[in-house]
Design a protein around this nucleic acid. Structure first.
Lengths: 221, 221
DNA sequence: GTCGGCCAGATTGGATACACGTATGCTTAT
DNA sequence: ATAAGCATACGTGTATCCAATCTGGCCGAC
């Protein structure tokens, strides 16, 4: 087995490779919730042994993406609609708080970058994948101005966890794309005014309402 | 090596044992931040092999309690004052949001339980350990009325991460205990009124101001 | 005297080997 | 025909083994 070839090509450790592979597969939706993931199979696909795969699975499990069942392997975590709604709510609370900090700190350059990202978002309205990428970039520009690295990490974590569902929602509900762009414009305006409270409220409601999840809530409260 | 004895005694898998052991050591402070943890050493202490220890370390790393450095082992994560402050802020944002949900949902029985916990808190003012226990109980009563299990889990996670630091703060600043009791009374009053916004604000400021961390902030913004 | 390279010990990352638990499919008895 | 019991195969969990990398001290050269 040409292991040295693998390392030379990728520059990644075996376990980092396994983590990245599984993470991508889950996030893209190629591994839907409930799928049984056999460590041996993944190991063979990547030409590595089961051990790094096991560790990657454990890490994904501790991050909530997978569920380990004793002696019965791991499955991709299945998210019920109310679970997804809850993740959006948590992200809204966190990113709202972050927005308050960012509004007091962002400068003209950051606002300009966000404006550019917003235009890119408008142009990407026809393609969900591009849209999601541009959408993430827009939010990331703001997060660069958040002086709380752990908070940023948590926001990204929850956004990542909800991304497969976001794609589905956008595909099923094309009008959501247009609404989302408008909401982003409002967020940008609030940020530009430097009003922390307004930015927080705006970001919160954007995340909650703009994602087309409101219809999933309702009976969850 | 009498492996079967281990399993029979503990009922835990080797990796669960390693995780629990390391987790307890870190949280109790016996393994202070910066300590280098050699997998082999831990494995010998627990009479297991290095492998489950490795997995436990990886999980602790993905939860933030340890930091893995490539090919150089793992160290217990060191929390700078601004890191702790950030954890408190995140918890404030999350538990504040939870409080808003709880205020709309808690009933007379829950309020009565909280009242009892509050009295227990007053009686525990002389001992930090009892105080922390009673304090956790008070917050947990509210969390029982939060209809968002993941949110509750996150709140508990951040509270756990900051607990060692909370003890230190309380010991250094005895007046904080008195202030904290007053703040809890305010939180309880807000909950009793059923006002979500007030409860959220109250809980947020309680966590931020009541923990004696305000003096650590200041220059972090 | 000090700085730089080199070798030895230690430690980590990864692979293989083995034992246990679980699931699945067959056989058999009712 | 159906259901219970058993056997086999698959997959997981752990231990041991090997290779690669890092750390620290020693020796030599400037």
């Amino acid at each position: 087995m040409a292991v040295e070839g693998q390392k030379g090509e990728t520059g990644l450790s075996a376990q980092a490779l396994a983590y990245k592979h599984l993470s991508d597969e889950i996030r893209s939706g190629r591994l839907p919730g409930g799928t049984h993931v056999a460590a041996e199979t993944v190991a063979q696909q990547l030409s590595i042994s089961r051990m790094p795969v096991r560790e990657a699975i454990r890490q994904l499990a501790s991050e909530g993406y997978m569920t380990m069942r004793s002696n019965r392997g791991a499955i991709v975590t299945e998210l019920a609609p109310q679970d997804v709604a809850e993740l959006f709510e948590i992200r809204a609370a966190l990113e709202g708080f972050a927005a308050a900090l960012i509004a007091a700190r962002i400068d003209a350059e950051g606002l300009h970058e966000a404006e550019i990202a917003l235009q890119r978002l408008e142009r990407a309205r026809s393609d969900v994948d591009w849209f999601v990428r541009a959408h993430d970039q827009f939010h990331d520009i703001f997060l660069q101005y958040c002086p709380r690295p752990r908070l940023v990490a948590e926001v990204v974590r929850f956004r990542t966890a909800t991304e497969p569902c976001l794609r589905i929602n956008l595909r099923n509900c094309p009008t959501a794309l247009v609404n989302t762009v408008d909401e982003h414009r409002e967020v940008l305006a609030a940020m530009g005014s430097g009003d922390s409270a307004a930015s927080e409220a705006c970001m919160r409601s954007h995340i909650l309402q703009g994602m087309g999840i409101v219809h999933l809530l309702g009976n969850v409260a």
